[in-house]
Design a protein around this nucleic acid. Structure first.
Ligand SMILES: [Mn+2]
Ligand SMILES: [Mn+2]
Ligand SMILES: [Mn+2]
Ligand SMILES: [Mn+2]
Lengths: 222, 222
DNA sequence: TTACAAAGTTAGTATATTCTAACAAATTTG
DNA sequence: CAAATTTGTTAGAATATACTAACTTTGTAA
């Protein structure tokens, strides 16, 4: 049985493997916010439990068992976020912090019931896919808003960051999942985007923000 | 910030203080299911944090702060049990185990929302009172079924044990909170009770079971 | 290809939580 | 009261999780 700490490491490893191919110790240390030696000794302990493959100075891999555990934790996290949003009147900017704790609860029925009550949702409040009960996790192919050219429109489908601060910022701009965003222009100076979207006057978004908005290009029916 | 472990000790201390007046180390060790030296060293650590008053060889007392923390954990536990029962279709025999974990989540809003959604319930699924948001905890004055004499009836209001095994046993006997129980006779041999209750044929309950059933005497309108 | 930087490892330390063994104090009992 | 029992304490050890300091390995860049 993994401790909450170990579970957080497994989740971090899984997410890193998806973003980059390689799993380095320093990325892990960074993600989990611990020192390199701490990550090093934890990885040894995870290896002892057959959750990661690891040899000195070599990159890390999750074992099949480790991967399955990570997916199960991610499932619990995302179901919780959805449950808080839909059934308990939380805002999308509040759910991540609570889910970070609830994901460590060992009670399969608790999460099965959430899933049932929610009607088996496929994505969480930030657009990330929810693994099904069998551990199948849909792969998404959205691109950051930064790849969209002036004159094109794209629909906001997901985010690469679900911190309270970022989501509160999106709230203040009334940007929600599903918004159809048109790029008006890109400032040469700082790469910031002038955009227009569903029922809103012109807005400016910094490049940093655009990088975190995952979109799908829409046919420009001109 | 108390760890889940520390929170379980605080809760145990509070419950012991209510059942007995005195708080002894061995009772604590027993309740939390650890060795005496473990309880001893934990109590020292709780004292460092000003959650208990404690001197070598003297009985223990919770500080005001410790008491408030214990009540808050109990509130979270009981609200969770009620939420699982009413909103997530759990049986009353399943809720305690999950609540034992959920009670350690630090997210006031999560529990406030449960309270709201449930309509501010006053008791949990096992009849124990739920402290309000200000830490007020209603005192109950129910008595164990063992004090009821043959010929008298009493209504089942609460339980002193909410283990899955005990509740599954009550389920099998169709005994629920609210049942009106009449004591037919008491076996001299083993103190077991022959009883009759709401829509049921005669049943026999051992003394051990009767001790755990908290009732209020009903006027015998003969 | 050496030299420097980045990444990873080891050693040593700290706190939290738990144990057993050995001993001491307090309480109960004959 | 003295002996026996119960209760509480200390010492010493183990595991989990974290740190800093010092060192080694690997990879890159001159
Ligand atoms: Mn999240
Ligand atoms: Mn977490
Ligand atoms: Mn309970
Ligand atoms: Mn608990």
């Amino acid at each position: 049985m993994a401790s909450p700490t170990e579970e957080n490491y497994l989740k971090a490893l899984f997410n890193l493997a998806n973003e980059q191919g390689e799993l380095s110790l320093s990325d892990l240390a960074n993600q989990v916010q611990v020192s390199l030696p701490t990550a090093n000794s934890m990885v040894k302990s995870l290896r002892r439990q057959n959750w990661v493959h690891y040899e000195k100075y070599k990159p890390l891999t999750l074992t099949e068992e480790g991967k399955a555990m990570a997916i199960s934790i991610i499932r619990k996290h995302r179901l919780t976020e959805m449950f808080l949003l839909k059934m308990m009147n939380f805002g999308w900017e509040e759910v991540h912090e609570v889910a970070e704790q609830v994901e460590h609860i060992h009670a399969p029925k608790f999460f099965e019931r959430m899933d049932e009550i929610l009607g088996y949702p496929s994505v969480d409040p930030h657009g990330s896919p929810i693994p099904d009960r069998h551990g199948n996790l849909e792969k998404q192919s959205f691109q950051p808003l930064t790849v969209v050219l002036p004159g094109q429109r794209a629909k906001l489908h997901a985010l690469t960051n679900s911190s309270t601060a970022f989501l509160a910022y999106l709230n203040s701009k009334a940007l929600t999942l599903g918004s159809s965003i048109e790029i008006i222009s890109i400032e040469q100076f700082d790469q910031s985007r002038v955009v227009r979207y569903t029922g809103h006057p012109t807005e400016t978004l910094t490049e940093k923000v655009c990088e975190r908005l995952l979109v799908q290009l829409e046919e420009t029916s001109s």
